[in-house]
């Protein structure tokens, strides 16, 4: 048996070495990229694809700054993290004409504030972060941030929050109608106090299992990404995704070209590959978010267009990106977060 395994391993190594012209090393979120799409790219371009995963934008940044820069070709940071990584000098610039399919980027995503002119990134998927409520437990109006921060009795003590400072504090800012990077001391004190009293209603902080706790019924309401809420519904949970009148968070993940990419050519090939409507639509069908590329409509699962998680009602508040604060302001927010979890 052992000999057989060794032989098999040796054979697969030879096969890998013989067939792949080059390599591509991707650093990506977990449970996001369909495996068959990677295989398709691998076959089309004769490239061996290796993928590592991370579970938060901050974990990606920490890993790259701790020395992983130079080992990966592309990563998939969220909007505000593209800006931070750009400021930190972790991104390479894509010269004009290097991406054949750059024109496929949807006009509204072609010049975003976090990466003007798409100098280093292309759109991957975008969606929203809000919360979902179990309709078996609570039947009233859910389109208010009160559900999280000042919940009705039925939901108190059964709420899961994302274990992510940016998303919790941005949602709290919307709830209180204050800027995300406020330096007004009264506002910051009020924010700190509001979170302390809201915490009494929360059961847990969990990002990785945000969907599972809703499906299992451990939580009756939970802060969640739109695609995860759609998946929870597909898995049988009677949950409804809310679009609060106070507003909700919009995010966009982007494929970026990392500085010192060891396989820069293949990274650009991969970015062009993901700008093909058919390919990026495959990601959308899998992850249940939205693509930022024109011409995807024909390749999308028809149920996506109608899914309630992608269709905010008319009275919904505005969708806002998470903002990047300066150091002095950020330190106060870090302190508020520590206070919340102490």
């Amino acid at each position: 048996m052992k000999k057989l395994l060794t032989t098999a391993a040796a054979l697969s190594l030879i096969a890998g070495a013989a067939s792949a012209e080059g390599k591509l090393v991707i650093y990506h979120w977990f449970e996001y990229m369909p495996q068959d799409l990677l295989e398709k790219f691998s076959e089309e371009h004769d490239v061996e694809v290796v993928m590592d995963t991370y579970d938060s934008n901050e974990a990606l940044l920490a890993s790259l700054k701790a020395g992983a820069i130079g080992t990966y070709d592309v990563a998939v940071p969220g909007d505000y993290m593209v800006q931070i990584m750009g400021n930190e000098g972790l991104l390479d610039t894509i010269a004009d004409g290097e991406l054949a399919n750059k024109g496929n980027i949807a006009p509204e995503w072609a010049d975003p504030s976090f990466d003007p002119g798409r100098a280093s990134s292309i759109p991957y998927q975008w969606g929203s972060t809000s919360f979902a409520v179990n309709r078996d437990v609570y039947e009233g109006d859910i389109n208010s941030t009160d559900i999280l921060f000042n919940p009705p009795e039925e939901l108190s003590g059964k709420i899961n929050m994302l274990d992510s400072q940016g998303e919790v504090l941005a949602m709290a800012a919307l709830h209180m109608d204050i800027p995300q990077c406020s330096s007004d001391r009264d506002q910051l004190r009020a924010l700190n106090d509001m979170l302390q009293s809201a915490k009494a209603h929360w059961a847990s902080f969990n990002s990785d299992t945000a969907k599972e706790v809703l499906v299992s019924g451990d939580a009756a309401a939970g802060q969640i990404y739109d695609g995860f809420a759609a998946k929870a519904r597909a898995e049988g949970a009677n949950v409804e995704y809310a679009f609060p009148t106070q507003g909700y968070i919009v995010w966009m993940d982007n494929v970026v070209l990392l500085k010192d990419a060891p396989n820069r050519e293949n990274a650009l090939l991969f970015m062009d590959f993901l700008l093909e409507p058919e390919n990026i639509a495959a990601v959308t069908n899998y992850a249940r978010y939205n693509a930022g590329v024109t011409g995807v409509a024909g390749f999308l699962d028809p149920s996506l267009a109608e899914q309630p998680e992608s269709n905010p009602p008319a009275e919904a508040g505005a969708g806002v990106f998470i903002e990047v604060c300066d150091q002095a302001t950020q330190e106060v927010y870090d302190q508020i977060w520590t206070n919340l979890k102490k």
């Binding site: 938060s56 901050e58 974990a59 940044l61 920490a62 701790a66 899961n160 274990d163 992510s164 400072q165 940016g166 915490k199 929360w202 059961a203 847990s204 902080f205 969990n206 299992t209 927010y333 870090d334 977060w337 520590t338 979890k341 102490k342």
Partner: peptide
Amino acid sequence: LLGGAKTFMIGSLIEEQFKGNAG
């Protein structure tokens, strides 16, 4: 996982400093 991450323990406090927003 079991405590709901509502309160820091030493391990999660240290993890937050390297992998979290505080950096």
